[in-house]
Design a protein around this nucleic acid. Structure first.
Length: 640
RNA sequence: GCGCCCGUAGCUCAGCUGGAUAGAGCAGCGGUCUUCUAAACCGCAGGUCGCAGGUUCGAGUCCUGCCGGGCGCGCCA
C-alpha cells in the first residue's frame, strides 16, 4: 500500500459521500512544505462539474473525510484544496513495514499480473551497433526491469534486423572476399588494421565489412547484379547461402552480446526473435487479411486501405504488405510479430520502444492489426465467434468515430479492454551539441562499443583526479560502473519523448543529477555502516539498530522518511507512463533528502534509540537507492 | 499539401488527468572540511513559459491562429 493510493481511496469515498461520485481525488505531494505532506485538488474540479462553490463543497468533503488514523492535520485551504499532514507514528509504522519488506520495499504486486512484451534494442545485424541503438536498448531495459520487479510477466523481445536485401549483398560479398581475396576485406585507413573473414566466418570489424560491401555494390554493377540474385537465393532457401547467412548472423549476434554485456543489459540470446523468425508466417498474414476481406490490390501491390490515415492526395492511406514482385515488407513482419505475441506468448500488453519517427508506422500497423482481429486472443471460452465478430465490428466503428471526432493521441491507439494493448513507446533522437544528429568528429557513425569505452575512460580520469578516493575503489569495475552508469543515467533522466543532446563534457563532469551523484550518496551511506562495524559491539547498540524501529522526529528525518515512502508510487508511475525519468527525478530528490539528513542528523554520534532509528533510516535509504538504480540498470558501489 | 512532435533561466532539462509564489543541474558569484567520503552541503543572482487571441474562479498545461525548429507521408527499415 502506498501513501498516494491510500489517500486517494479515502478521499474518493469522501467525494462520493459529498455527492461527487467517480470524481478523481487528485492526490499529490504538497507543492510547498507549509501545505503539509500531501494535497488533494479533486474538490475544485468536482465542484466545477457540479457548478457549486468549491470552498463550500470542499468543506462538505472534509466533513465526510476521516483520516484520523494516519493524518495529524487535515486542512482546508485556498479555493478548496485539502492539505494533509501525516501522523508521525503512522509514518514510523509505514517505514517499519518497508524496512521489513527488504525484497519488494512495499511496492504492491498487481492482482492480475499481465504478460507484457517489451520490444527493444532491435539492431540491424548487417552492421555494428551504433549510438542509434543506445536509447532503445537502455530505455527498454529499464522498463523491462521495472515491470518485472513490480510483478508483471515480462517477455523481452529483440526484434533484430536479420533479413532482407542487405543480407543478400553481404553473403555475396563474403563469398567474393573468401574466394578472390583470401579472406581479406581490406585495411582500415584510420589505424591500418587488416580486416578479415576467417574460415569460421569470424569478422574483426563488422562495420568495415558492411561499408566495403556497400561500396562494391554501389560501384560494381556486375557485383550488384550478383548481390540481387543472392537475395533471391536467400529467400528461396538455397543451402550454401543460408549457411553463410546463418554463420554471419551468429557472428553479428556475438557482437551484440558483447555490447549488451558491456552495457549491463538483460537481453540474451533467448530474447532474440528477428525478422527471419517470422518469414514462414508472412504468406499466412497476407492470406488472413484476404480472408477478412481487408486485402486490396493497387498497382500490383497487396495491402490494406486505412480510412483514418490520408496520403498526399487526401485519399485513404494504403499500407502495403506484399510488393508487386511478391516480396514482403517490415509492416508484414510487424503484423506477424503481433500475431505471434498475442497467440503464442499470450501478451496482454506489448510495448514498442523505438524512435518517434516510427510513430505513424506503428499507428498504421496497430490499426490493421485491430481490423484484422490479430489483437484478440481466443481466451474467452464463453464468447461465441459471432459475438466476437460483433464486438470486433463495434470496436472498429468506435475507433473510426473517435478519429472522426478528432479525439487524438492515445485514445485512438489504445485498444479495447478485451484485447492486447499495443503501445508505441517513442523516444527522440540523439543529437550532438550542435543540435544535429550525433556523429563522430569526422562525421561518421559513433559505434556503441567505442562510446562505452570512452565513458569508462572518462570515469577513470575523473576518479584518478580525486585525492581522497579509497584505494580499493580504483579498479576497472568501478570505472565501468561509473562510466556506464553515467552514460545510461544521462539518457534515462531525460523525458524520453524529447530529443536528447549528448555532450561529452556533461559526461566527463559527472556532476549534478547524474549516476555518480547517486552512487556517491550510496557509497557514503555504506561508509557509515563500515564505521559502525569498527566500533565495539557495546557502542553499536546491538540488535535494536537492526530491527527497523524508526522515529522521524527531526524535520530532516521526517522529510527523508516521507520521501522513502514515496518509492512505491513512483515505481507505479514509471510502469504506467513508461517514463524512467520519473524514477531518476525521484532518486535525485531522495538523495537530496538524504543529504539534508546527513548534514543535520549525526548517525553514529547519536545514541540509543535515536541512533538505532537513524541507522535503520540509512539502511532503508541505501536499499531504495540500490533498488532504484538497479531498475535503471545501474550498479552501486560500496566505495568511491 | 496533409499529419505528428517540439519551443520554459546564458546552456541542458523537469513541470504528474488545468491548481496555490514555474523548479533542478551546469556555468557565474559568495560561504562551509580538527567532526559518519567536499564527486558533498548552504546562500545569491538569473523568467513577458515562442507570439496573439480564447475557454474559467485559475492556463507553462486545454482550444484557435500565427512565427520558428524537427520528423513522417504505398512497393527501404
Amino acid at each position: 500500500m502506498n501513501i498516494k493510493t491510500t489517500l486517494e481511496r479515502r478521499i474518493s469515498d469522501a467525494l462520493a459521500a459529498a455527492g461527487a461520485a467517480e470524481a478523481p481525488a487528485m492526490v499529490k505531494p504538497a507543492s510547498r512544505p507549509e501545505f503539509g505532506d500531501y494535497q488533494a485538488d479533486g474538490c475544485l474540479a468536482a465542484a466545477k462539474k457540479m457548478k457549486t462553490n468549491p470552498r463550500k463543497f470542499a468543506e462538505a468533503v472534509v466533513e465526510k473525510l476521516d483520516l484520523s488514523d494516519l493524518a495529524e492535520k487535515v486542512e482546508l485551504a485556498g479555493a478548496g484544496f485539502i492539505n494533509i499532514t501525516l501522523k508521525r507514528d503512522w509514518l514510523d509504522s509505514r517505514l517499519a513495514a518497508m524496512f521489513a519488506d527488504e525484497k519488494h520495499l512495499c511496492v504492491p504486486i498487481p492482482k492480475n499480473p499481465e504478460t507484457v512484451i517489451v520490444d527493444y534494442s532491435g539492431p540491424n545485424l548487417a552492421k555494428e551497433m551504433h549510438v542509434g541503438h543506445l536509447r532503445s536498448t537502455i530505455i527498454g531495459d529499464a522498463l523491462a526491469r521495472t515491470l518485472q520487479f513490480i510483478g508483471y510477466n515480462v517477455i523481452p523481445q529483440n526484434h533484430v534486423g536479420d533479413w532482407g536485401t542487405q543480407f543478400g549483398m553481404l553473403v555475396e560479398f563474403i563469398l567474393y572476399v573468401r574466394k578472390e581475396k583470401g579472406g581479406i576485406v581490406g585495411e582500415r585507413d584510420t589505424d591500418g588494421v587488416v580486416v578479415t573473414v576467417d574460415s569460421d566466418l569470424r569478422i574483426n570489424d563488422l562495420e568495415f565489412l558492411y561499408r566495403m560491401a556497400k561500396r562494391k555494390y554501389d560501384t560494381d554493377p556486375e557485383f550488384a547484379e550478383k548481390a540481387r540474385k543472392r537475395v533471391v537465393l536467400l529467400q528461396s532457401g538455397d543451402k550454401e547461402t543460408l549457411e553463410i547467412w546463418e554463420k554471419f548472423r551468429k557472428e553479428s549476434l556475438r557482437h551484440c552480446k558483447k555490447v549488451y554485456e558491456a552495457l549491463g543489459v538483460l537481453l540474451s540470446d533467448k530474447d532474440v526473435r528477428g525478422e527471419s523468425f517470422y518469414n514462414d508466417d508472412l504468406p499466412n498474414v497476407v492470406a488472413d487479411l484476404e480472408k477478412r476481406s481487408l486485402l486490396k490490390i493497387s498497382d500490383g501491390a497487396k495491402g490494406v486501405y486505412l480510412e483514418e490515415f490520408k496520403n498526399q492526395d487526401d485519399k485513404p492511406f494504403f499500407m502495403i504488405v506484399q510488393k508487386s514482385d511478391g516480396g514482403y515488407l517490415y509492416a508484414t513482419t510487424d503484423l506477424a510479430a503481433i500475431r505471434y505475441r498475442v497467440q503464442e506468448l499470450h501478451a496482454d500488453r506489448i510495448l514498442y520502444v523505438t524512435d518517434s519517427r516510427q510513430a505513424q508506422h506503428f499507428a498504421q500497423v496497430f490499426a490493421v492489426a485491430k481490423k484484422a482481429d490479430f489483437v484478440n486472443r481466443a481466451r474467452h471460452n464463453q464468447s461465441t465467434p459471432w459475438l466476437r465478430l460483433i464486438i470486433g465490428k463495434l470496436i472498429n466503428i468506435l475507433s473510426f468515430l473517435l478519429v472522426l471526432f478528432h479525439i487524438k493521441r492515445k485514445t485512438n491507439i489504445r485498444e479495447h479492454k478485451l484485447s492486447t494493448k499495443l503501445e508505441h513507446v517513442p523516444f527522440g533522437m540523439m543529437l550532438g551539441t550542435d543540435g544535429r544528429p550525433f556523429k563522430t568528429r569526422e562525421g561518421g557513425t559513433v559505434k556503441l562499443m567505442d562510446l562505452i569505452d570512452q565513458a569508462e575512460y572518462a570515469a577513470g580520469i575523473a576518479m584518478d583526479q580525486r585525492e581522497d578516493v579509497y584505494p580499493q575503489a580504483r579498479s576497472y569495475k568501478t570505472y565501468k560502473a561509473i562510466g556506464v552508469g553515467a552514460l545510461k543515467y544521462a539518457d534515462l533522466s531525460q523525458n524520453r519523448t524529447s530529443d536528447y543532446v549528448f555532450s561529452w563534457d556533461k559526461m566527463l563532469s559527472l556532476d549534478g543529477n547524474t549516476a555518480p551523484y547517486m552512487q556517491y550518496a550510496y557509497a557514503r551511506i555504506q561508509s557509515i555502516f563500515r564505521k559502525q562495524d569498527e566500533m565495539s559491539p557495546a557502542c553499536q547498540g546491538g540488535d535494536s539498530a537492526m530491527n527497523g524501529t524508526i522515529h522521524v522526529v527531526e524535520p530532516a528525518e521526517r522529510a527523508l522518511g516521507v520521501k522513502l515512502l514515496q518509492f512505491p508510487e513512483t515505481i507505479e508511475a514509471v510502469a504506467e507512463t513508461c517514463l524512467p525519468n520519473i524514477l531518476c527525478a525521484y532518486l535525485y530528490d531522495l538523495a537530496g533528502a538524504f543529504m539534508g539528513f546527513y548534514e543535520t542528523c549525526p548517525v553514529l554520534k547519536s545514541e540509543g534509540d535515536i541512533r538505532a532509528g537513524r541507522v535503520a533510516l540509512c539502511k532503508l535509504a541505501a536499499r531504495v537507492i540500490q533498488k532504484g538504480l538497479e531498475l535503471l540498470g545501474i550498479d552501486v558501489l560500496e566505495q568511491m
